[in-house]
Simulated scan of single mutants.
Amino acid sequence: MNIKFHYKIEDFPVYENNLIFYQNIWLKILRESLGYKQLLFEFEKEGKSLYISGSIIDIGWFKIFYSNMPYGGFCGDYSFFEKAIHYFEKQLKEEKIDRIYITRNFLNEFPILSGFKREFAYHTVLFFDKEGLDAYKKACKYKINTQIRRAKREGLELKKITGKNNIDDYYKMYAATIRRKKGNLYWNKTFFKLIPEMLPDKYSIFYAMFGDEPTAGIMLIKSKDIVHYFIGASNDKYLLKRPNDFLLYHAIEESIKEGFKSFDFMLTDSNDKNLLWFKEKWGSKTFIFDKFYKDLCNPFKSNVFDCLYKLYSSRAAKRLLLCCKQK
């Protein structure tokens, strides 16, 4: 088996995939915004190739290989999958990687990873085939249209941004939303700067405006056949005006008119049933999204990392950090 390792983004081979998240331009955005070292493994045997790309998250004493966000995993021919996994783990040990994360979605059904632990989330998609459109129209008739009429009566209007525009305001709304929900701010300001620079025709932002003030917004990322509902943001004082229903309705309608084959609501935590219900009410289908992980270091080191991460992610720790910043 011939194995190649690519450390420079410009060395990455171009391989066909409909999802933008597997393409070189997306990997470059991740590298330049999050600062992670990019690594791609190319396994080749008898003219067939299997790829896995990911980021090395290095916090000093603990290193993680994470298949690229949000839909990382393997691409290519799976006929020599088990041998490739063996070499893959061996190489990561030489890189002194402590933990591996690899994700699998319904579009990328590679075999089960033996020896890996498994977690899951939900992946919800609205398909624009006959069955999907019938379900969507039925949902609009009995659920959605009432909310859209209410939003219009409340005075909401649609504003769309695309192309090489400054989207700092959307980053601020996103950051405020994450802080309000006590979440982790994953996508940084540089990421929002690079999206319009590198993907001017592959993204759009919809705002639900009340006068001159945005009540909520959604960022869409466009693959060849799929529109991805990538990041949502909102102002909680306007939630009763139903801005989220208003935005999604217009985003889905535009996706249908532009000829896309599906609308991807993306991932939902396995414990968040309310959000899952919101995504499914549009007539969409839900699939299991697997996250496989394996520790390559000793168990004590992994346990220490997990304990520290839980402490960092806890609400008490976030309140303490907020108090320190205010002082």
Score class of each variant (00 low, 15 high):
M1N: 14
I3P: 01
F5R: 14
F5T: 14
Y7K: 15
Y7H: 15
P13H: 15
V14F: 11
E16I: 11
E16F: 15
F21G: 06
N24T: 10
I25C: 08
W26C: 10
W26R: 10
L27Q: 06
L27F: 04
R31V: 07
E32R: 12
L40K: 02
E42Q: 09
K48H: 12
S49D: 04
S49E: 11
L50S: 03
L50C: 03
S55F: 01
D58Y: 08
I59K: 05
W61K: 13
F62V: 11
Y66T: 12
M69T: 15
Y78E: 04
F80Y: 12
F81V: 04
I85H: 04
E89A: 09
K90F: 03
E94D: 13
E95Y: 07
E95W: 01
D98R: 02
R99L: 07
I102T: 09
T103M: 04
N108W: 01
F110Q: 06
F110Y: 14
I112L: 08
I112K: 12
G115K: 13
F116N: 03
E119V: 15
F127R: 13
D129P: 03
E131S: 12
A135H: 13
Y136C: 04
K137M: 05
A139I: 02
A139V: 04
K141N: 09
Y142H: 05
Q147A: 13
R149D: 09
E154F: 01
G155W: 00
E157Q: 09
L158S: 08
L158Y: 00
K159R: 09
K159Y: 03
K160F: 03
K160Q: 13
I161H: 04
T162M: 13
K164P: 00
N165W: 06
I167W: 05
Y170H: 09
Y174G: 03
A176K: 01
T177N: 15
T177F: 10
R179E: 15
K182F: 11
N188E: 03
T190H: 06
T190S: 13
K193Q: 08
P196N: 02
P200W: 07
P200C: 12
S204P: 13
I205T: 00
I205K: 01
I205W: 01
A208S: 07
M209T: 10
F210A: 10
E213Q: 07
K224G: 01
H228G: 01
G232K: 02
S234F: 03
Y238K: 14
Y238V: 07
R242W: 00
D245V: 01
D245Q: 03
L248Y: 00
E254Q: 07
K257T: 13
E258Q: 14
S262K: 13
S262E: 06
F263Y: 06
T268H: 00
D269E: 15
S270Q: 07
S270F: 08
N271H: 09
L276N: 07
G283F: 00
G283S: 04
G283D: 05
K285H: 06
K285V: 10
F289Q: 02
D290I: 14
K291P: 02
Y293V: 14
K294I: 15
L296Q: 05
C297R: 10
V304C: 11
L308I: 15
S313T: 09
R315I: 14
A317M: 15
L320H: 05
L322R: 11
C324T: 11
K325C: 14
K327T: 12
